[in-house]
């Protein structure tokens, strides 16, 4: 019994660890503030998976309680993150975390982005937007071909 349960647990733990590490790596690798925050949330989800697995394994409610509170705290942090990101965007016009590197040791040179070739304007493709305030017309042709399953 114990062997089987442990194997099961191990699977959950592996998934939890992978999610957690994805979050960590994402936080370090990505520069977009929103994505970074999402990665941080992902770390918490990894922790949550682990906790729930342990909770089930130990037959103890504590882990699940902690998960509930983690979700609550994550919500708080999300609120703060949103406010912060909004204000940072308003201030800098960018969501680039590397933009915020003014505070550093003296005599240490700043990082400069490698120049990415600008996209040509004509090549830029915007997503098509649905016209607002007008009811879409029914495409009769398609309706006729649609299979009724």
């Amino acid at each position: 019994m114990a062997e089987a349960e442990l194997d099961l647990l191990q699977n959950y733990l592996t998934v939890g660890a992978i999610v957690f590490m994805l979050g960590v790596v994402g936080l370090i690798a990505r520069r977009n503030l929103i994505v970074m925050f999402l990665c941080a949330e992902m770390m918490l989800q990894g922790v949550s998976i682990t906790l729930v697995a342990f909770s089930r394994f130990h037959n103890d409610w504590g882990g699940q309680m902690l998960v509930v509170f983690i979700i609550a705290v994550a919500a708080c942090e999300a609120a703060i993150a949103l406010a912060l990101i909004l204000m940072l965007y308003a201030r800098a016009g960018k969501l680039d975390a590397a933009y915020w590197q003014e505070m550093r040791e003296e005599n240490v040179p700043p990082y400069i982005d490698r120049e990415v070739p600008l996209e040509r304007l004509e090549e830029r493709r915007w997503p098509d937007l649905a016209p607002a305030g007008v009811a879409p017309e029914i495409n009769e042709e398609e309706q006729s071909h649609r299979s009724h399953v």
Partner: peptide, 17 residues
């Protein structure tokens, strides 16, 4: 050690990791 303190958020996170 000064160069470690370069002002980049991600670098700091990397050091911590």
């Amino acid at each position: 050690f000064r160069n470690m303190q370069c002002g980049m958020l991600q670098t700091y996170a990397l050091w911590m990791l």
